[in-house]
Each structure stands twice: as C-alpha cells, then as structure tokens.
Amino acid sequence: MLSKETTIQQELCERFDCLKDKVKVQRVRRIFAQVPAVDLPEVFDYAVKKLNFCILGAITGLDEGPTLGLIYHLAQENGIVLNLATSVPKDKPVLRTVTSYFPAANAYEREVIDLLGFQIEGLPQGSRYPLTDDWPAGQYPLRKDWKADILDQKEAAKNA
C-alpha cells in the first residue's frame, strides 16, 4: 500500500502537468514541491481545498540570486507538511496574497515585503512589519548583497 505522502505526490503530479517530477517526498510527513509562479494560485487552492492542507505554518522568503523564492509551509491535521516553493524574478517579485485562505498570512507576507522586497498584491491595509517606520526605502536586509555596514557607511559619509 502506498503511503499517504506518496498518494499526495501522485495526486498532485496527475492533476497538474507543471508539477511532473517536481514533487518529492523527503521523509515521512515531509513533501516538497516546486511550482511555477503562474500556476501557484491554482495549486495552492487545490492543496488547501481538496487535499485538506488547512494549516499555514509559515512563509519563508529566500534570495536565490537572479530570483526571489517563496515557500508556503502548509500542513494537514495529521502532521503531513507540504512545502510549496515558487520563484519570481528579482526585478518584478509580484505575487498574490493568500490572506483570503489564511488571515494569519498577513504578518508572514508583510515580513517578506520588508525583509526581501516582495510585492504582494491584494494585502489589506495595515502597519508594516517588522522594520521601523523610518527604515530607508529600497533596503532589503535579507537580500544577500545587503550588509549591515551599508547603513554605517552612509552615516559616515554624511558626517564626514
């Protein structure tokens, strides 16, 4: 008999052509999938509504060089975690919000906006998180080319 993880893997691969060979079961209760950004809304909707991934644990943002990556960590009640990863170009890192599914995504999405410079469409109004109100625009601390001393240098240049 197939394990629950393999069944989910097969169902995803059969339902979506874009996911062929892109879904791997890393260990018991851990599934990783790489989804093209255009297909993400559809795959996400299917995972939440049809596959019962009813918990959004976290959203991880990554700097992958030319692209920015985003991983949605979804979980079922029985402990199985589906990590849906996607990549968007750094010069146009635009994605739709998932707050309509999970209101708690609000803080997770604001975090990737502040720290990595994502643009999340459809996010409700609210205060920024987690950086300060006077944080300089265009500085994204979790990008690989960002170093903390960038701020020090600017300050030194001004004081010189």
């Binding site: 975090e111 720290l115 987690p130 903390a148 004081n159």
Partner: peptide, 12 residues
C-alpha cells in the same frame, strides 16, 4: 520579532 541592528540614516 527575533529576526537588524537599526540605525537611521535619515538624520543622525
């Protein structure tokens, strides 16, 4: 909040 030493470069 875990996750930058904050220094303002707007006005020291």
């Amino acid at each position: 909040d875990r996750a930058i030493r904050v220094r303002s470069d707007v006005d020291a």
